[in-house]
Amino acid sequence: MWSYFARRVVIGIPTLWAVITVCFFLMRLTPGGPFDAEAPVPPEVLANLRARYHLDDPLWRQYVDYIINLLQGDFGPSFKYHDFSITTLIAQGLPVSMQNGAAALLLAILIGVPLGIFAALAQNTRRDYIISAGAMTGIVIPNFIMGQVLILVFGVWLKDSVLHLPAGGWNDGALPNRILPVFCLAVPYIAYLVRITRGSMIEVLRANYVRTARAKGLPFRLVVLRHALKSALMPVVTFLGPATAFLLTGSMVVETIFQIPGIGRYFVQGALNRDYTLVMAVTILSAGLVIVMNLIVDLIYSFLDPRVRYDERAP
């Protein structure tokens, strides 16, 4: 099995390279450049700037240089934040994004999965309809609306009550500043998890082996936990792999709304500023995380279902 995963890691390298290459050239195809947004500068200054960042080199030269630097762990200088290297920016922003993402993920799993099971066990009753309707609502409300509403309610209307929460800002990660953004991040994921868990649990509860387990005289709770849950979690895990990658790399929308110094916000700013290296770095990070998470998902599959095996030997 471990040789399989070693192989998967090796296969991940060309995947990552393809992502880097496509992204590199797409960025350069986009009209405009890193210095267009600034106040108009004399052509000589612009030429100097371009020379300093090697933008006057042929494109293939820039590409080769970028890859070589990358292999040495250097994401290059930021085109916008002149005194920072991208590595520094990421070292500042990534932990913030990851903490929020991990908290949101945990919240989503802890609320979404049990609620989905709860709804499935009461299929087509009022309890189920209320939960399902709530989940649908959570999915259809975009997070830029959700964020504004949360700010309005907890930051403005409840300003003089104990429930008051800061409308934005980071304040070095003080707990009250984290609550709204984490909740806002988590809501759509809670909603998706409820729907996926509910659907898959309903299906598994119809399985013949669940009937067998009930015919053994096991209490229903035990039938669900011991015989149904593992199979029902397969689609949940499938969803959680890429979802984790997206959550950990920060949400540009939520971080922008709540003024959080994570890398999601850098991504937006970077794209607007044509800060090539910054956008590249965030993309590479996201892609790398997606690859890693898919690998972890495959590992969890083999734990949930013994039929899933990754060695060459046929069982």
Partner: peptide
């Protein structure tokens, strides 16, 4: 009171 079901391929829990 016990029961033997029709389809042995799907009547046992696959992950146990």
């Amino acid at each position: 009171l016990t029961m033997v079901f029709q389809d042995p391929m799907t009547s046992l829990t696959p992950h146990m």
